[in-house]
C-alpha cells in the first residue's frame, strides 16, 4: 500500500485536464474518486520531509500550492493542510466517504469564490528634521508619533471591516511584521473580484498612513476548514 500525498478535495472534473501536472517530488498528479467527490493525489516515494529540512519543506509548500492552484482553475477545490498523507487509495476513498457531508457543505460554501489576501502596512512617517531642541519637544514628538501609530491601527481595523462588506467571509491571519497592521483573507465571489480590488486601490489612495497590498487570487485555503462534528455519512 503506497502512501498518497493528498492536496485537496474537489468537485468532479475531467482528470485528463491534469495531464502533465507534477506534484510533490515531481510525481504525476492523479485523482481518487468516491461518488461526487474527488481527492487530488500523487504517490509519495520519499515520505514527507523532516521538520528541519527547510529547502525540502519550501519545495513541498510550493508543489502543494502549484497543484491546488491548477485544480482551482478547473473546479471548486477544498485544499488539505500541507503534508496530508493517506495510506493508499482505499484510505483516501474512506476519508471521502466518511466526511462526504462535511466536504460537500464546505465545497458549497466556497463554490464560485476565490480567496484574496489584503495586507496593510503602516507607512513610516518622515522623521522630524534635526534633533529635538528640548526635552519638552522630544516628548511632544514622541506623543505625536504614538498617536499616529494608534490612528493607523484603528484605520487598518476599519479597512478590514469595510472590505468584509464586499466578501462572503473573512479570516484574520497573524501579522507578518510589526508594521503589518492587517493581514486578512477574504472569500470573494469571482464576479466581485474586480470591484474588491478596485475598492482596496481606492482605500490605498485615500489613506496615506497605510500601504495596502492585495495578494491572490488564491484557492480558498483560509476557508477550507470542515465541520468535524458533522455527522459521518454512510
Amino acid at each position: 500500500m503506497s502512501p498518497l500525498y493528498t492536496y485537496a478535495v474537489a468537485r468532479p472534473f475531467d482528470p485528463a485536464r491534469l495531464a502533465g501536472l507534477r506534484g510533490v517530488d515531481g510525481a504525476a498528479v492523479t485523482v481518487v474518486r468516491a461518488g461526487d467527490l474527488l481527492a487530488i493525489t500523487s504517490s509519495l516515494a520519499s515520505g514527507t520531509p523532516e521538520p528541519d529540512d527547510l529547502p525540502a519543506l519550501e519545495a513541498l509548500a510550493r508543489a502543494h500550492d502549484r497543484v491546488v492552484a491548477a485544480v482551482s482553475q478547473l473546479t471548486t477545490v477544498l485544499p488539505f493542510r500541507l503534508g496530508t498523507v493517506h495510506l493508499g487509495r482505499s484510505g483516501v476513498v474512506g476519508v471521502l466517504r466518511d466526511r462526504h457531508a462535511a466536504f460537500g457543505a464546505a465545497l458549497d460554501r466556497v463554490a464560485g469564490c476565490v480567496e484574496l489576501g489584503v495586507k496593510a502596512y503602516a507607512v513610516a512617517r518622515p522623521a522630524p528634521v534635526g534633533a529635538p531642541g528640548s526635552g519638552r519637544e522630544y516628548l511632544a514628538q514622541r506623543r505625536e508619533r504614538q498617536e499616529a501609530e494608534r490612528r493607523a491601527v484603528a484605520v487598518a481595523g476599519r479597512v478590514g471591516a469595510d472590505l468584509l462588506h464586499l466578501a462572503r467571509d473573512g479570516h484574520a491571519h497573524s501579522a507578518q511584521a510589526s508594521t503589518n497592521l492587517l493581514n486578512a483573507s477574504y472569500l470573494v465571489d469571482t464576479a466581485s473580484v474586480d470591484g474588491f480590488v478596485a475598492r482596496v486601490a481606492a482605500l490605498d489612495r485615500a489613506l496615506p498612513e497605510l500601504d495596502l497590498v492585495v495578494t491572490g487570487p488564491w484557492a480558498p485555503y483560509s476557508f477550507a476548514a470542515i465541520d468535524e462534528d458533522m455527522e459521518l455519512s454512510a
Binding site: 514527507t48 485544499p79 493542510r81 500541507l82 503534508g83 466536504f103 497573524s174 485555503y221 477550507a224
Partner: peptide, 22 residues
C-alpha cells in the same frame, strides 16, 4: 503569504489513516 495559508489552514482530517508531517 503561502505559509499563512498552508499552515494551520485547510481542511483538517483526523483519523488513524491520515498521517501529517511529523
Amino acid at each position: 503569504d503561502l505559509l499563512d495559508r498552508l499552515l494551520g489552514e485547510g481542511a483538517v482530517i483526523t483519523g488513524d489513516i491520515t498521517l501529517s508531517i511529523a
